[in-house]
Amino acid sequence: MKINPLTIKKFRRFKSIKRGYYSFIIFLMMILASLFAEMLVNSRALMVRYDGNYYFPTYGNIIPGTTFDLDYDYETNYRQLAGEFEKESSGNYVLMPPVPFNAYENDLKDDQFPPFPPSIKERHYLGTDAVGRDIVARLVYGFRIAIFFSLALLLANYTIGVSIGSAMGYWGGRFDLFFQRIIEIWSNVPFLYVIIIISSIMVPNFFMLILIMAFFGWIGITWTMRTVTYKEREREYVLAAKALGASNMRIIFKHIIPNTIAIIVTFAPFAVSGGVVALTSLDYLGFGLPPPTPSWGELLQQGWTHLDAWWISGSVIAAMIITLITVTFIGEAVREAFDPKKHTVYE
């Protein structure tokens, strides 16, 4: 595929904006790490050597305790197993991930009540939440859900919003007027209330929640796309395409949208952070994904009810700040890189 020299130039320019570029790398690494979270933060061992056999429990089916000659049928408790192997010192060993907890299990103690403060010895590096679940695990898995939620939401919103927006701009006239009114009515529906009502009668799952949010979220980008398309359709290349007999569809999707990509791309990072914030706030209010899904909003809620357990609110707020700042820096850099006026200076 041949890349447009203009695009290459934009990439170079993006790369030259160090703050945004490094944020981008950090952000990518975060996503990548979260994709392999099972190998970093998990109660399942990475590898078990037992009587000469090797087991890799991370992915796939559970390995019941009986496999390792333990007296139970349910999933092996690898942390316990590791301890026992150590005592035996018979060449068997268990290799645990750096954080040996999953996001759901309750690590509870006798005579003490969660939340437990951070402890390196217990390997709860950020402590536990109010029911004894590891906060690192909740944060990492919560991040994965939030970020993919937000990306999926972005895709859905932009697919609908960009298509409708360009169509409005391209055809103009009555079609435009009609959709303008529709959008005006639509945007007056109190979005938050609708979500609250819906999720109080049925618990939305991941995709359902995206669907509901996209239902109201596509509006934002339409106005921008409509205006840009109005401008673009008067340009000569559109006239030329028309003269060559290209269909409206083709003109919109092959000619106009690629020429407005700068605008779309500029808005995208901010929409991503918007999506994360939206999901977090819904979870905070208890109307998001059903418990016990790991979620930042739920952690935030716990932090609020257990204000004295500073590590809960502390970690989730820090995590949010890092994520949102990187995304915002990326957005800023993208905007600058795609800005046709080269010498814009941000103060």
Binding site: N106, R133, S200
Partner: peptide
């Protein structure tokens, strides 16, 4: 919720999956 998540984790050991639905 805190009570139910503990029940859920324990039920898993017994081979039963509880799907929690908070309305």
């Amino acid at each position: 919720t805190p009570r139910l998540v503990v029940l859920k984790e324990e039920a898993k050991k017994a081979g039963i999956e509880l799907r929690l639905q908070k309305l």
